[in-house]
C-alpha cells in the first residue's frame, strides 16, 4: 500500500462531513414523514393528464381487473398506461428517453410519472385532495 491509501480514514472522512450527513438525514426524515402521513388515506386517485387536458381518472384502490389504455398526442406520439389494483405505470411510450417507462409502478399519494416529450402527467392524489381540481399545466 502506498501513502495515498494508508490514511484513508482521514481522506474519506473529515469533521465537517457530519454537517452534510446530518442535513441529508434531516431531509430524509422530512420526506418520509410527509409521505407516510399522505399514505394513511383510504383511497388514492390516479389522474392522467395529456397536454394539460385530463384524459383519465380512476380510484386505484377500486380497480378489480387490470386494464391498459393508450393516450395519443398526435404526430405518432403515444403512451400506453397499465392500471392494476393499487398501482399504475407506463408500459410503452414513443418518447426517446423512456424515463416514464423505466420509472415503473407508482402507488403512493403524491407520486408522479412525467413524460416531458409527450407532455403526459400521471398524478396520484390522496382521497381528501380529490376535490382539488388541477387548473392547468404549464410547459
Amino acid at each position: 500500500m502506498n501513502k495515498y491509501h494508508r490514511n484513508w480514514q482521514n481522506r474519506y472522512f473529515k469533521p465537517g462531513d457530519l454537517i452534510i450527513y446530518t442535513v441529508l438525514i434531516a431531509i430524509f426524515a422530512l420526506g418520509t414523514a410527509i409521505t407516510v402521513s399522505g399514505n394513511k388515506t383510504a383511497a388514492s386517485v390516479a389522474v392522467v393528464t395529456s397536454d394539460g387536458q385530463e384524459v383519465h381518472r380512476v380510484d386505484l384502490k377500486k380497480v378489480k381487473a387490470p386494464y391498459e389504455f393508450t393516450v395519443e398526442l398526435g404526430g405518432g406520439h403515444y403512451n400506453t398506461i397499465r392500471v392494476e389494483n393499487g398501482r399504475i405505470r407506463v408500459i410503452e411510450a414513443s418518447c426517446p428517453d423512456q424515463i416514464d417507462v423505466k420509472q415503473g409502478w407508482i402507488s403512493l399519494p403524491y407520486q408522479s410519472i412525467i413524460c416531458l416529450p409527450n407532455r403526459l402527467l400521471i398524478n396520484i392524489l390522496p382521497a381528501q385532495d380529490e376535490v382539488e381540481e388541477i387548473d392547468g399545466i404549464a410547459f
Binding site: L24, I25, I27, F28, L30, G31, T32, I34, T35, G38, L108, P109, Y110, Q111, S112, I114, L116, L121, N123, I134, D135, G136, I137, A138, F139
Partner: peptide, 21 residues
C-alpha cells in the same frame, strides 16, 4: 420537474434522493 409540471410533490422523492445520493 416541479417547475415544468406545477402539481408535483417533490417531498415524496426526498428519501430516495438522499439514499441514492
Amino acid at each position: 420537474a416541479g417547475l415544468v409540471v406545477e402539481t408535483f410533490n417533490i417531498f415524496v422523492y426526498f428519501p430516495i434522493l438522499v439514499v441514492s445520493a
